[in-house]
Simulated assay, not measured.
Amino acid sequence: MSRTDVSLRRSRALLTGYFLGLGVVMAVWGARMPAVQHAAHLTTASLSLVLLAAALGMVAGLQVGGRLARPERLPALLTGGAVALSAALALLGQCQTLASLLAAALAFGAAHGVLDIAANTGAVRCQNAYGKPIMSTLHAAYSIGALGAAALAAATADLNHSALFMATGVALTLTALVAGPHTVALNGADPKVPGLQEAGRHRARGRVWLLGALAAASLLGEGAAADWAAVHVHALHAGTAVAASSFALYSTGMAIGRLTGDRLTTRFGAPAVVRTGAVLAAAGLATGVLADSVPAALAGWALFGLGLSGTVPSLITAAGNHGPRAVATVSVTGYLGLLAGPALIGALASVTTLPTALLLPALLAAALAILIPRALENTAP
């Protein structure tokens, strides 16, 4: 095996670890949110402010990361972003007041944004160096990390959340520091890809915004699954445990799809894989919502996750061909869909019904199937 092959394998392993860590941190934070609220005696409105601070920090971090994510800076951004995110998680566990939580959440979101951009930019570079799709598998690490951490949070429900946050933060910080010196492998030759400064700049900008809009449509569905899947199934008179399994089934479908996505993309191409998945997601969720039965609803959410699994990795790959700032633009736009989606579903449900409102992500998945071929044309790994 050549030195180049060893370097690429090491880079891929390191990036897998960073995506895994992102999933772990976000799942631990989300799963123990009620404990954070209780410890600081927050009202629902106050908790919303904390979440808003995290979202604002993330948008800022994505923008800063997009400007800083040059090849020579990737090792420092990855290591620094991972350490900062882990430290912010540990700090969040110690906060007992709204003011301290707002400051910690802002730092948490900013670190997440920087690490997100660094990891995805590194993934695009590594994939281009491999010359074959690996993005979906890397994103699968995020899903697996989130699933494992959610299970850990549930298993340690009796443990004080501050201890869990501290233990997770310390473990991930030490891991990032040990891995830090090896991330120099990501400084390999930069692939020759078109940039926004070259000919066709306006067309490239338009394509980047299209990619961002499609990312928002896809992540709106992810937000809907996270916040409304259990509510939807519970409304069909399912028990609490069965209702809670709906998001687990969605996440499992997402993980399975991402673990197999690279092989399918190699064989059939990204446009065909994502288009077929979007059709599956639209049909699965629509059937699950309209059938008005628990088994159909659970199957629908699982198919929705499976169908959408390849969308974001393919959109990030396409954006990466225009540089890290394009990745930042697509990520910011996508996260707006993730953040706004649950609220939009709730607003629609208040004037119609929840099943009717949940047809929106199904319709957006159908729109993805129509627009994806244009967005992903001439996209190479």
Rank of each mutant, 00 (worst) to 15 (best):
L186D: 04
N187L: 09
N187F: 05
G188M: 08
A189K: 14
D190S: 09
D190Q: 11
V193R: 15
P194I: 09
P194V: 14
P194Y: 07
P194H: 12
P194W: 08
G195M: 02
G195A: 04
L196P: 00
L196R: 00
Q197C: 09
Q197G: 14
Q197W: 05
Q197H: 10
Q197K: 11
E198Y: 00
A199M: 02
A199I: 03
G200I: 00
R201M: 01
R201E: 03
R201C: 01
R201Q: 07
H202T: 12
H202K: 08
H202M: 13
A204W: 01
A204N: 02
G206W: 10
G206Y: 11
R207W: 06
V208Q: 03
V208E: 04
V208D: 04
W209V: 09
L211W: 07
L211S: 12
L211K: 11
G212K: 01
G212M: 03
G212L: 03
A213C: 15
A213L: 15
L214A: 10
L214K: 04
A215V: 10
A215Y: 01
A216F: 02
A216L: 10
A216G: 04
A217C: 11
A217D: 11
A217P: 10
S218L: 09
S218G: 09
S218H: 05
L219N: 03
L220W: 00
G221H: 06
A224C: 08
A224P: 08
A224S: 12
A224E: 08
D227F: 06
D227L: 05
D227I: 05
D227W: 05
W228T: 09
W228C: 08
A229W: 07
A230K: 01
V231F: 02
H232L: 14
V233G: 10
V233K: 12
V233Y: 11
V233T: 09
H234Y: 14
H234G: 15
A235V: 09
L236M: 13
L236F: 08
